[in-house]
Amino acid sequence: MLDLKGVNAGYGSFQALFDISLNVKAGEAVAVIGPNGAGKTTLMRVISGMTEPFSGEMEMEGKSLSSFPPHQIVELGIAHVPENRRLFPGMSVEDNLKLGAFAKTARSDSAKNLEFVYELFPRMKERRSQLAGTMSGGEQQMCAIGRAIMSGPKLLLMDEPSAGLAPVVVQQVFSLVRRIREEGYTVLIVEQNVQQVLQVVDRAYLLEAGQLIDSGKSKDLLESDSVRKAYMGL
């Protein structure tokens, strides 16, 4: 579904990603794990069009992403749940969700998708007229994921969904990710919380200092000594 070949990217003269090649197949859940500052967020931003890559090929279902302006990437079926959720704090939950369906391709299904989001997160339905900025971190994460779902995506990019949340809430967030998988979405997730994320994804890439250094099935990685030592402190 998603194919990256030799992607280099960064900001100005600073390069954050070096020669990244990865792929995500339809129906898969894939994680990119790595320490702070490894370039995980940049990777997400490059795919969704927020940051322009220096060079490299990116394809979504055979279509080259570079031939679309950034705001049309979402119409190809890529939805990005950004780092720190980035809701519109002064707007209601429902307005936030509605904005998720702004893309022309999403508007016709927006009523159906809204129904689905409310079914997935009944809490959001209760809070639909509340200002998004006044909700708890976990609720905001639900809203952010719901907003991404509103665009009717095939692929969900999730950037550190567990960051800044209390441990109990982190558990909830990962069960959310599992739910979304079960609904048939393809997921590319970036996480520092390696132990937990490896339990919900099929495969994972290891990103360090802007380069992919390893990849494999989650099961194998969970058992790999080097991964356990480097990322789980075991």
Binding site: S48, G49, M50, P70, H71, Q72, I73, V74, E75, A79, H80, P82, R86, F88, P89, G90, M91, L99, G100, F102, A103, K104, A106, R147, S151
Partner: peptide
Amino acid sequence: QDREIMVLMGV
């Protein structure tokens, strides 16, 4: 409220 994120909404 968030100029940068608009692009993700397809705006």
